[in-house]
């Protein structure tokens, strides 16, 4: 496949030298973000968290990271980790929570995660803007839903919430392990783009997997601790004390 036959949303894969000039100030994107901000602030219970989450999302798409993710799968993974494990919990904590069985939400997120990171759909996102946005919106939406369901369930069904967290951590680690250990390149697009950055596509993929395995695991642990410990311990008598401990230790 020729990566230049179609210009993907974030532009063609950049050379290392040109990366810093690749801020993406696409009017449609900016307009979409602005609308999302307005809507989010209108709905939010906690506007500071909402604003924080929004800034992160905006950065993930406007900054050169978006362009870099056209060249390196590891950059794409970094983008998705920040999106689903940092921005999503922030926004989920800011919005009124959605009541949904946490395991069902975890299943939905797992399905979105695996489908969009499987070879064929992944390639499709690089061949059509529509698919690209379908991917990010569904992935991000599923992530927000999952975190929202976790926040809602942690008091009433802590075990289901615990299971959902375990399932999510396990399935993401599983994906990471597979791409680290794979002897072949999953996403053929990067066969020609990763070498621009001095990495073989296989090394880029292993790096992506290791990032997800290690970085993703740590991010997940921190997010779970922060989002859930607040709710989980709030109801117990000595909660305040332990909460302070957890917050200052993470």
């Amino acid at each position: 496949m020729d990566p230049l036959a179609y210009v993907p949303f974030c532009g063609p894969p950049p050379e290392p030298g040109a990366l810093m000039s690749r801020w993406l100030l696409d009017p449609a994107l900016l307009a979409g973000l602005a609308v999302a901000l307005g809507l989010g602030l209108w709905l939010a219970r906690d506007r500071r968290l909402m604003a924080g989450g929004w800034v992160l999302v905006a950065l993930l798409f406007v900054s050169p990271l978006c362009a870099l993710s056209m060249a390196l799968f590891s950059a794409r993974v970094a983008q998705h980790l920040m999106l689903t494990l940092v921005a999503a919990p922030l926004i989920a904590a800011a919005l009124p929570s959605v009541r949904m069985p946490p395991l069902a939400a975890a299943g939905l997120f797992a399905a979105a995660f695996w489908i969009w990171h499987a070879p064929a759909p992944y390639t499709a996102t690089l061949e059509s803007d529509l698919v690209y946005w379908a991917m990010h919106l569904s992935l991000f939406g599923a992530a927000v839903l999952l975190w929202s369901a976790l926040v809602a369930a942690v008091r009433e069904a802590p075990f289901a919430a615990f299971l959902a967290v375990a399932v999510t951590a396990a399935q993401m680690t599983l994906y990471a392990v597979l791409i680290v250990l794979s002897p072949s390149v999953w996403h053929v697009w990067h066969l020609s783009t990763a070498p621009l950055w001095g990495l073989s596509a296989l090394a880029d993929q292993a790096l992506a997997g290791a990032l997800m395995w290690v970085g993703g695991g740590l991010l997940m642990a921190v997010s779970v601790a922060l989002v859930l410990s607040r709710r989980f311990l709030a109801g117990t008598a000595a909660g305040g004390r332990t909460l302070a401990a957890q917050e200052s230790s993470t």
């Binding site: 296989l202 290791a210 990032l211 695991g217």
Partner: peptide, 28 residues
């Protein structure tokens, strides 16, 4: 409890895992 489940790769450094990922496992 959480972290310990992600670390098993470090018993397998000599089995020929990709070099680039080794450094991250090592850090983890």
């Amino acid at each position: 409890g959480f972290i310990s489940f992600g670390l098993w790769a470090h018993h397998m450094f000599a089995t020929g895992l990709p070099i680039l990922s080794l450094t991250l496992f090592s850090a983890a």
